[in-house]
Design a protein around this nucleic acid. Structure first.
Lengths: 222, 222, 222, 222
DNA sequence: CATGAATGAGTCTTCATTCAT
DNA sequence: CATGAATGAAGACTCATTCAT
């Protein structure tokens, strides 16, 4: 029947659409996401090296071979998780526009960025663990992209600061250094929230970061 | 103080050398430190898991068995490195005294703290690498103590902030959150310096952190 | 002591040579040969692919890791075996000299070659098995060198035939084709001897091959 | 005869087609032969062990399960290929009749045998590759039947030689040894032809083998 | 009959640790 | 004390085969 469905669907099937159950692609994607999700937990819990395929497949309740049906290697699951997260994060970060008079004021834009990022990050503990803690192995494959991601964000912040200085909104400073400081501050706060019993709300965190950044960086009173 | 014991043995040991030739204990201690030093490089270069005993003993030019004569396990060298570093760092961080009128003003005390820490940290790249990047493996053996150390520092900062608020020196805020933010900012800047081609001077970093912290945290104009 | 032996041998050792037991290199070489020998059997018995490291170490009564102390990989043991055999065989095959009047007559030279080769080959059944039967995997790594070896020998024979034709000793023929025929004949006879209950003596085989070759190839009566 | 059934179906099947559309059995047989043909290529190209079901089904453009609808196992496809080849070869080899005065002279009979065999063998490269190179694994499943086939042929030759000696046509010799030699010579020449850029014609090969065999084996001035 | 997702036994390889010399 | 050969547990990955649809 499967064959008929594939090779001569019209010949022996009536009006009713031949796909009552969800499509194969959907099932495949579901499985993939299930494995991905389990793997994320395992990586968060054990770290890349101590995470074993055995643990992953055991939690996912699949066979060894099944894992390799969806991912080429341990490295590749890890990469997939990271890639998706970084893509998602990048999408949530937009450069702050200080030129357009129609745009929100910088503080508001910054707040929106922060809220979007914090929302995502604090909603996925295992993932955040991975992002914050997987910086081992500086020379080799594993940590590379996390580093690169943070570096990218730092560049974004740096150029915003530069811009701000030119517009007299930001006090003159070593922009790169301060950018890394701001980024680090955000990471530090997120780290705190992860380990805190009852973490502050996303809004509170965002506001604290902003208060911090505004006062620490911006010119003028406040 | 622990440091004194190591670097100025003459200060608290009697005049007469305890043995004609270099004492066995000294020889042992020398060897130990040599291994420790090499291991630090290797851990910094490869990360904990990819660092192999083979690499360590090869660089230290000792035999496999010799390594285990000085350390119980791979884990234990790692611990030793960390322990010493953390001890050293703790010794360089003193709680800021805002009560004693004879003491330096808080900003100066803070600056001294920072200079002492940055001095140590930026003077030992491999070590800093380890401290910043070895946070993998949250549940298991490896990262525990790094986490604990940073948590300790955060507590120190938190209580300083608390104190500051009471004395109206610091604006009211979520002290723990801000403490982790400050700590993160410092780490972020240090991380930047490690990867930067020509890092800023220790003083510049310290001043930027302080400018940052003062404005971000302290009350009033400035 | 071992250390003294290495770093200051003269300082604390008397006249007696410090190496009463056989040298470390000798022991290492012994071990290596033992593993090599066992591996040869296993390869001969199971074929390259079905031969497992497990079988080899079990027969050699060594641990898994020990194997990898002496050989980099399964492939590399196999290569070592082959390399040695081919080196040995090449050394036993000398081009037949038909020009030098002081040399033995061609038949005699040929006979010596054959005797030397047969001696070696029939004295090491497992090896011969490997050489005759490991021609699988035409495109990949394994069989390459065996093929190459036989091709080399064929070239040797071909040029001898060519020479022989020029000197009117050999009947005109498709030399390459006949060379491969002669080589095949020899391999066939050897194969027979391996499977025969009581194989003919080396001399008998050599003589039969020669009778065969002489008549099949040489010009004139006989 | 089996061959007739395959290559000249019209010869022994009635006029009326047995079914309106192609019979199910025919379809099945077609599929089977298609798989067999692809598998032969894959085995020839990769060798038994490196040949994967995946490669076979991919080239045959069928599903994994379908393969197992036609063959029990990887081993069994291999066996089928071999069985057919050996059946075919056996059919092309007839014992040389030296008694019947009406029969062709021995040389001619031999030549016919050779031509028939070479025709088949050189017309199917993949198959020949398999026959010549798949002799790995002496103890286990794979190579057994190839060995047996060649042994059978050797026996055939041996008895021919025996007969020839009795009739004073062949010089006295170790018949089994010489039989394997002849067989090996043939294989060697075929091997050469497979790897040669432009192989000699079937006739040339046959004649060279005969020249070789006649002179090497037969009595008298020739 | 056809399909292809799922299975899991089997292999190679690494590396921290031990111990006889 | 020093040595380094030996160990073996652990882990990643492959692939022939099955079976529900």
């Amino acid at each position: 029947m499967a064959r008929a469905k594939r090779y001569q669907p019209g010949a022996n099937s009536p009006i009713i659409p031949p796909v009552p159950h969800e499509s194969d692609d959907d099932r495949r994607e579901q499985r993939r996401r299930q494995i991905l999700s389990v793997a994320k937990e395992v990586f968060a819990e054990f770290g890349y090296h101590n995470a074993s395929i055995g643990e992953i497949i055991s939690r996912a309740a699949i066979a060894r071979g099944t894992f390799y049906l969806y991912f080429q290697s341990k490295q590749s699951v890890f990469d997939s998780i990271l890639d998706e997260a970084l893509r998602e994060l990048r999408a949530r970060i937009t450069e702050i526009d200080v030129d357009d008079p129609a745009a929100d004021p910088p503080q508001v834009q910054l707040r929106h960025n922060l809220l979007r990022v914090l929302d995502y990050v604090l909603g996925d503990r295992p993932l955040t663990h991975m992002l914050l803690n997987h910086r081992e192995d500086p020379r080799a494959e594993v940590a590379e992209r996390v580093q690169v991601f943070f570096a990218d964000v730092a560049v974004l912040i740096t150029s915003s600061l530069q811009h701000g200085i030119e517009m007299k909104l930001v006090r003159p400073c070593n922009t790169a250094l301060v950018a890394w400081g701001l980024l680090g501050a955000a990471r530090g706060m997120i780290e705190f929230c992860l380990s805190a019993g009852q973490p502050p709300s996303v809004e509170e965190i965002a506001d604290e970061i902003i208060a911090f950044a505004l006062r620490g960086v911006f010119v003028g009173e406040r």
